[in-house]
Design a binder for these strands. Structure first.
Length: 762
RNA sequence: GCCCGGGUGGCGGAACGGUAGACGCAGUCGAUUUAAAAUCGAUGGCCUAGACGGCGACUGUGGGUUCGACUCCCACCCCGGGCACCA
């Protein structure tokens, strides 16, 4: 260690890196000057909305959150540092099963449970120093918020994009309740350990098929925009599940059934051996008119056949007993019903081509036995008559399917529907929203508490005023998420206004679409459906200003944080607790470590070495900078410290200073580029490299001429100021503290980016 | 079965067509310390007392492209995550 640092250290603890003190000081200062406040809407100024994921009120911030928000916050701070006006805020996704389970475990109403969780998590996130605009934070379980879900439900219902169908759910007879998949353990109820059975019941669906094609077409534009990460685009393609191929109309002859069949193997039509039709195919009933077939189809629908089996060796296969002419005009193909179609091609009918498709190959092996059982022969009768086959034409199928949005749960947005004896299902008029969810429910896990609450259930019909019952299903929180990207763009003071007033606000036009969503890679489905619904709302009017119907101009999906090569879980005992890390090393270290440890798109296998490395780095930057600042002060005051009393007579290090400035320039350039592309891992590494260069400069000058000249010292401090600026997005507390120590002030929202001068944003 | 990642020292991981193992962790040695922790420095295959001396191996496996492959292509094996009432 150079002597002057030792001397300086002896003066006291001033230069010791005390992360907790620094962080408390900076966070107080940020609160004081409202640094993360969303700037006023000024359309002619550069501005952007960065959307973090809406955390579920799970009770604790985990490493995945820390990772997600460290990436988003670094980007937000970077953009602010460059002078952009940034909206960076989120709301809690507070409805859902885990809240209900948490409430059951705690014996409290879910509303209380989520409020407590949100308060605790807010404290954790604030301690980490994320620059969210907390004034805009919200809870999705707040009536002012969930009235949006109800409004959206009704709007989509009017447009025919929400419809009522039937679905299968797991049901426990003992507890008289439906169960989610995770509540079923080895076919038994999680609560009473009795067997569970699948039942069929009415369910509300969201019709996404209306916009799947447009979602597909827009992908190319999103890719061309350059702000969608490759992995995120791939997830959208995967959710969409586009398959290109050909289709042909097969007809069994005059009066006989006909079917349009699809195959991705356009060049192998002559190898088709059977036809598979989805149980959800719109024309399925025409193929299941025989009593035996109908019975088996019902069995399949109501779950009598194994629901979990996706394996081609055991997946349900029902012979319709009918045949269709082969598309290549050679013989007849048996027609079979199987859910094996859905997962790959959607609710359609496909040709089975064993020679080109592994699944078809396995099914073909089961065919002789099946046909013998149902038709008495394994050979399809080819003398059935003259069939008709159209020429094949190019066609596309999408795997993405309508999804069920209603849940038999008491902790969710009430579905604004009442059932009237005379009028059936009647939508609640929009002006009567919100339909309030009773808050004094303490679920036990049995029954349906909402359905048992007569003051909620019994109401009157909006059409005739007669007696009616409310829908007691609630909306899946996936449905809430469809609009959860919008409300932070609404100024907090307008939040209570009517929806019409809110939708007319210039703020929405100003901030939407979001410049970038930063979320976990498991958000692919959410984002897909948000893109669907944005297009619906564009066509319905409220979001007409989003011409392409895209809510997110950019998107980054980061991978998860694991530990010991496995997902973190209490069961495995490999959970890393962010609070403990913050307590030990400080927020800056933890944030820097998660960014440093892996690029966002890669799974981060947690290792203490990253946090140790980050901590040592920050400690060194701090101590080195403080020592050099002190030395420069002594130099300026003409009282050289002990180590520097041999102040150089001649200045021989001009070429080193030149080199230093080149390093700085190049480093800043590279880090800027990294941040523009959200390559946080690379950016942090480059910051560390730059610091090594700065230390190297110092070392070489001292080796050469014994001490720093005035010019050397100035150059060094300039380099350290630059380093503080570049560190701002990653370790904001320490960066700002250094920036101030180097003689700058804290007028703007953020330490400015090199070359940018920031003024307080009003 | 399908989709997405990934397989490099004791460990986490660099490099992404040009000296593999950057940077770190752990280990060892040293400095500081009454001591410990923390910190700093040195060290990191084998041979040699020691080296800017000698020797050898090496990026899951098998092929291929190339003057040259961790990197690109093909086939396979293994690990992790996901696959629609968890969010």
């Amino acid at each position: 260690m150079p002597l002057d640092i030792l001397v300086y250290m002896s003066e006291g603890a001033k230069i010791t890196y005390d992360a907790h003190a620094i962080e408390a000081r900076r966070q107080a200062a940020w609160r004081e000057r409202d640094a993360a406040r969303t700037p006023a809407v000024l359309d002619d100024q550069p501005h952007l909305y960065i959307k973090p994921s809406a955390p579920f009120t799970s009770g604790n911030v985990h490493m995945g959150h820390v990772r997600s928000y460290s990436i988003g916050d670094a980007y937000a701070r970077f953009r602010r540092a460059r002078g952009d006006r940034v909206l960076f805020a989120f709301g809690f996704d507070a409805f859902g099963l885990p809240a209900e389970l948490g409430a059951i475990a705690g014996g409290v109403p879910p509303s209380e449970w989520v409020t407590r969780c949100a308060e605790h998590m807010t404290g954790q996130l604030q301690r980490l120093g994320f620059s969210f605009d907390w004034e805009r934070a919200f809870m999705s379980s707040d009536p002012v918020m969930y009235r949006w879900s109800q409004w959206l439900f009704l709007s989509l219902l009017e447009a025919g994009l929400v419809y009522r169908g039937t679905g299968n759910v797991d049901w426990c007879d003992t507890c008289q309740t439906t169960l989610a998949t995770i509540q079923v353990e080895d076919g038994l109820c999680w609560r009473c350990h009795n067997p569970v059975r699948l039942i069929e019941r009415p369910t509300w669906y969201l019709r996404i098929s209306a916009y799947t094609q447009e979602n597909d077409q827009r992908l190319d534009e999103l890719a061309a925009g350059g702000r969608w990460d490759e992995v995120a685009l791939a997830s959208q393609r995967f959710v969409l599940g586009r398959v290109d191929g050909v289709e042909a109309d097969l007809s069994a002859g005059a009066g006989g059934p006909a079917l349009t069949v699809f195959t991705p193997h356009a060049d192998a039509l002559e190898l088709a051996r059977f036809v598979l039709i989805s149980p959800k195919h719109p024309e399925i009933d025409a193929w299941a008119s025989d009593a035996g077939v109908r019975e088996r189809l019902e069995e399949l629908r109501s779950g009598g056949l194994e629901r979990s089996s996706r394996d081609a060796r055991s997946i349900a296969l029902i012979d319709t007993g009918r045949s269709l002419p082969a598309p290549a005009g050679d013989g007849w193909l048996p027609v079979l019903i199987s859910p094996a179609v859905d997962g790959r091609f959607g609710a359609t009918a496909v040709l089975g081509i064993p020679e080109h498709d592994r699944t078809d190959e396995v099914i073909a092996e089961r065919l002789p036995e099946l046909l013998t059982a149902s038709r008495g022969t394994a050979v399809v009768d080819a003398s059935a008559g003259a069939g008709a086959v159209s020429p094949p034409r190019p066609a596309v199928r999408y795997k993405a399917d309508d999804f069920s949005i209603s849940r038999q749960r008491s902790w969710g947005t009430p579905i604004p529907i009442v059932y009237c004896e005379t009028h059936g299902a009647v939508p609640v008029p929009k002006e009567q929203l919100p339909v309030l969810l009773p808050l004094d429910i303490t679920p036990t896990g049995a029954g349906n508490p909402l359905a048992e609450l007569s003051e909620f259930v019994h109401t009157t019909c909006p059409l005739c005023g007669g007696p009616a019952e409310r829908e007691t299903d609630t909306l899946d929180c996936h449905f809430d998420a469809l609009w959860l990207w919008v409300p932070v763009a609404v100024p907090p003071e307008s939040r209570e206004e009517t929806l019409e007033e809110i939708l007319a606000l210039g703020d929405l036009r100003h901030w939407l679409p979001s410049e970038r969503v930063v979320a976990g890679s498991d958000s692919g489905n959410f984002v897909f459906d948000q893109r669907i619904v944005t297009k619906a709302l564009r066509d319905l009017g409220p979001l007409a200003f989003l011409a392409d119907g895209e809510p997110f101009a950019g998107c980054l999906f980061h991978e998860m944080v694991i530990s010991d090569g496995r997902k973190m879980s209490k069961h495995l005992g490999n959970v890393v607790d962010p609070d403990a890390l913050v307590e030990r090393y400080g927020a800056d270290t933890v944030r820097l470590a998660v960014l440093y440890a892996a690029r966002p798109q890669k799974t981060l296998n947690w290792s203490d070495s990253a946090v140790l490395r980050a901590h040592r780095f920050l400690t060194q930057v701090w101590e080195f900078s403080q020592a050099r600042i002190a030395a420069a002060e002594q130099l300026a005051a003409g009282e050289p410290g002990e180590g520097a009393d041999a102040a150089p007579l001649t200045d021989t290090s001009e070429h080193l200073r030149l080199k230093l400035s080149q390093w700085c320039e190049k480093g800043a350039e590279k880090i800027t580029e990294d941040l523009e592309g959200l390559e946080m891992h690379s950016a942090v590494r480059n910051v560390m490299r730059l610091f090594d260069r700065i230390k190297d400069f110092d070392k070489r000058v001292v080796a050469r001429q014994g001490a720093l000249s005035r010019a050397d010292s100035d150059a060094l401090l300039e380099a350290l100021a630059l380093l503080a600026q570049l560190l701002g997005p990653f370790a904001p507390h320490m960066a700002e503290e250094l920036w101030l120590a180097l003689g700058n002030d804290e007028s703007g929202p953020q330490t400015p980016w090199p070359g940018v001068s920031l003024q307080a944003v009003a």
